[in-house]
Amino acid sequence: MNVKEFYEAIGANYQDVIARLMKDELILRFLNKYKDDVNYDNLEKNVAAGDYKEAFLSVHTLKGLALNLGLSKLGAATGELTEYLRAEGNDPEKVEELMVPIRECHKEVTENLAKLS
């Protein structure tokens, strides 16, 4: 699987990404770094611990990262949670509900990242 096919597989717009980052090799390099990024794990950890303030920071960073890498679905999903967590007094059930699409997107991305050559 090449970079273009990767973006097609996760339903994102390859043209946008390549226009910004110019080269497949660069995109590949950043994508590989995403594998090692801790923000998603931090998000899961903070959500589990009920530390929504930290969770906000994690999901916010994750969103920026996702948008930078052109992972648009993940970006949208994290965006939802970011906006919810921005205010005080969060409902854990609602957070769990918003976490579902984030988990799905993250899974899709990591699965496809594994296939990426």
Binding site: L21, L26, K33, D37, N39, T61, G64, L65
Partner: peptide, 11 residues
């Protein structure tokens, strides 16, 4: 964030 930083730096 390393990745964001790297992307911005590169551009």
């Amino acid at each position: 964030n390393d990745i964001n930083a790297e992307i911005a730096t590169m551009i």
